[in-house]
Design a protein around this nucleic acid. Sequence first.
RNA 1: GGGGGAAUACCAAAGCGGCCAACUGGGACAGACUGUAAAUCUGUUGUCUUAUGACUUCAUAGGUUCGAAUCCUAUUUCCCCCA
Length: 376
Amino acid sequence: MKFDLTATDPKSFARAGVLHTDHGVIETPIFMPVGTAGSVKAVHQRELEHDIQAQIILGNTYHLYLRPGLGVLEKAGGLHKFNGWSRPILTDSGGYQVYSLAANRKIVDEGVTFKSHIDGSKHHFTPENVMDIQRTIGADIIMAFDECTPYPCEYTYAKNSMVLTHQWLKRCVDRIQTTEPKYGYEQALFPIVQGSVYKDLREQSAEFIASQNQQGNAIGGLSVGEPHEDMYAMTSLVCSILPKEKPRYLMGVGTPENILECIALGVDMFDCVMPTRNARNGMLFTTEGIINIRNEKWKDDLSPIDAGLGGYVSTFHSKAYLRHLIINKEILGAQIASIHNLTFYLWLVKEARRRIQEGTFVEWKNKMVKIVSQRL
RNA sequence: GGGGGAAUACCAAAGCGGCCAACUGGGACAGACUGUAAAUCUGUUGUCUUAUGACUUCAUAGGUUCGAAUCCUAUUUCCCCCA
């Protein structure tokens, strides 16, 4: 894997770059649609590629391990072959499930025991077997096994958790260095900075993560309910420590506003379930602002979903029709809304990239932040 | 023509003397959602309102009772059965 910085913004820490993987290039800053179970919910791979122009999607180690299971994935020749997505894939390690499935798991130094949310069966995850599982899934970028801490989080807990995540990271690195990819292409390990909202912990963690000298670095444990100021402050601090020449991935972020602000802080890669989950629940992100398409005011609005966006579904279908579909729980409604939101997210980062290269990013960003976060 | 049953808020449907402005669904309206246990979840839904407050409701009109959506009488409408 190779990362080239192609432009840096003179008035902020924003950068534009190109990340080369064996499944193709990723132009940063980039947004990566989340496809937890090997599918970006309600969106077909063909639409991801052609309409949305996604360059990389996510999968999830925990979910894919439970279903379809490693046997099927190995037999298929990896997730790319299994789901038919030939561009890059990144898999999260299950670290987020340590947070989101907190009621179903137990953490010890060795690893984490999960009680499956599907059938209650017990499964033990360790840094080593999480690396092995991600070898079998075969993503281009694989994440270190970490603990995503909740918010609020006591200092002592955050510190101990961070230390544990660092210990786990060493074991992940060892495992990756002593094993080979299964399908003949490279897999890059991204370690994850933790430390909750504590400056000294974030600083310490960022330094440790940087010292591991991996091909890219991630910031985790944010956008879990903390105030935005904290999220920005931690991101800013960590970006100032992580190496400039490697891609920075802010995990789980976020709203269009969050993404623009964090691009300005030096983040290159983002993922979030928001454009897809909120789409299914009737919330649309548009070039004019946020709309809740279920609201009565759109009932007879026959204007395009988003005339300012080039996407096919966004200009072809009306707000009134999409509202009708969503209100009736028609599957097509979830599809159209998801395609639209992802098209918008990808447009947003592509436009940010263009502005960075052009040198007009900050002015544009400041204007856009207001527009994209207003409720229509 | 004779016999029986039913009428409850936008819809459906509980309630069968006080704890009922009235269970529960649906619908409607609004909100939440940030490395997906989410095509999910939450709130409101008689009127006025800050209300643990007042007022008007359970087909209509009377009546019994300290007290009625709940009991009685009449009327209206609907459904079923027998001719």
